[in-house]
């Protein structure tokens, strides 16, 4: 098994930390992992992205042209990365702020309303955990136990009281994924 994932959005949305938790989770499960961020001035307010690879084998290139999964959190990233998903691959995105929705028909597209759900939970910071939950629902490549273990390892001790809140957010994300294509089809049938 090798799973090649790009996570992209605005700096400050928790893109890099979501990737880090995913990488930690993979490590807890005994996988080889790599986490390659975009770095530099673009992190400060601009777009940020990170490539995360989980694999049974030694990981070769951390830079890729095509990904199995893209997790997209803003319009710019959607425009940039929609075309980089392998045919048959997966796109997960938060529809908030998206005006031009994805149009590919050879991939599976899912929505998760991370921003909205995080507001409902009263903590915008768990936004990225909700999105991570959505990803894990669609690609259950790591067990939730290992994700929680990964979270524990990647968070400093002083934040460990927030672990249950994060677990709730992940579970919420798992429950709230919407299959965008079938939704779309449904909508067009209604029209």
């Amino acid at each position: 098994m090798t799973q090649e994932i790009i996570i992209a959005g605005f700096g400050g949305q928790g893109v890099l930390s979501m990737g880090k938790i995913l990488a930690y989770s993979g490590m807890m499960q005994g996988e080889e992992v790599s986490w390659m961020p975009s770095y530099g001035p673009e992190m400060r307010g601009g777009t940020a992205n990170v490539t995360v690879i989980l694999s049974d084998d030694r990981i070769s290139s951390p830079y890729l042209k095509l990904y199995d999964t893209a997790i997209i959190l803003n319009q710019q990233s959607l425009d940039k990365f929609e075309s980089t998903i392998k045919p048959g691959g997966v796109l997960i995105y938060d529809p908030q702020g998206i005006t031009h929705h994805p149009s590919r028909t050879d991939i599976d597209i899912y929505q998760v309303e991370g921003h909205k759900l995080a507001s409902e939970m009263g903590n915008r910071k768990v936004f990225n955990m909700i999105v991570l939950g959505a990803f894990l629902k669609i690609k259950p490549i790591v067990d939730l136990d290992n994700v929680m273990e990964g979270l524990k390892r990647s968070l400093p001790d002083r934040y460990h009281h927030l672990l249950p809140l994060n677990e709730d957010a992940i579970r919420k994300g798992m429950k709230s994924v919407i299959d965008y294509k079938s939704e779309n089809q449904l909508m067009s049938e209604q029209h």
């Binding site: 880090k20 490590m27 080889e32 992992v33 790599s34 986490w35 390659m36 770095y39 990981i59």
Partner: peptide
């Protein structure tokens, strides 16, 4: 920069 910034096991 790649080997410096990448995170791995």
């Amino acid at each position: 920069g790649m080997i410096g910034q990448i995170m791995e096991k």
